[in-house]
């Protein structure tokens, strides 16, 4: 079981990182979107390894099946070929990349220093059958107010999106 889990982790992790790299480097946005979808699905697999199967479903239904469909939809509505033949990276890409790497180095240092300090509790042999219930419980009791705020945020976003995307007269 352990080796299987490890193999799965490595598989998902490599897939996620590789497609993430491809995502930010592709010229063609549709290909980029497909690679992002792959990353998201691999992440969903990692959620499953972490026994968060409800989040796995949320990730697949909402992220991949909802948000990314929206992305692909919009990508098809905007002109691809013009942007494909233009320069893909900013002029300051070198500085930006270096800064990002410095940031990553800091995080890396922090994790490296604290390595081994954090450990997961022993894996239960069975996937806990109550994950969905537990999440729902927390969401509707302890996190009720944030939940409502999130719904209002969604409502606002919906109205905002409709207003933004609506074609103006004339």
């Amino acid at each position: 079981m352990q080796t299987l889990n490890q193999a799965l982790f490595i598989f998902f992790a490599v897939l996620a990182v590789a497609s993430a790299i491809l995502m930010v480097t592709r010229r063609n946005i549709v290909h980029g979107a497909v690679f992002l979808i792959t990353t998201l699905l691999s992440t969903a697999g990692i959620f499953l390894l972490l026994q968060a199967e409800f989040l796995f479903i949320v990730q697949v239904i909402l992220y991949v099946g909802g948000i990314m469909v929206l992305f692909v939809f919009v990508i098809m509505l905007v002109n691809l070929d013009v942007s494909m033949r233009q320069v893909q990276f900013n002029r300051q890409w070198f500085v930006a990349g270096a800064l990002a790497l410095v940031l990553a180095g800091q995080f890396l240092f922090a994790i490296w220093v604290g390595r081994g300090a954090l450990r997961l509790p022993a894996m239960a042999s069975e996937i806990s059958p109550k994950n969905t219930e537990a999440v729902a419980d927390a969401l509707f009791s302890h996190y009720m107010l944030p939940f409502e705020i999130a719904s209002i945020l969604l409502l606002v976003a919906m109205i905002g999106a409709v207003v933004m995307a609506k074609r103006r007269a004339g």
Binding site: L77, N79, L80, D81, R85
Partner: peptide, 17 residues
């Protein structure tokens, strides 16, 4: 009606535009 010349692909005609 925007059709981008040079690249002969139907997707070059702007859909949303």
């Amino acid at each position: 009606t925007k059709t981008i010349s040079g690249m002969d692909s139907v997707n070059t005609t702007v859909l949303g535009a």
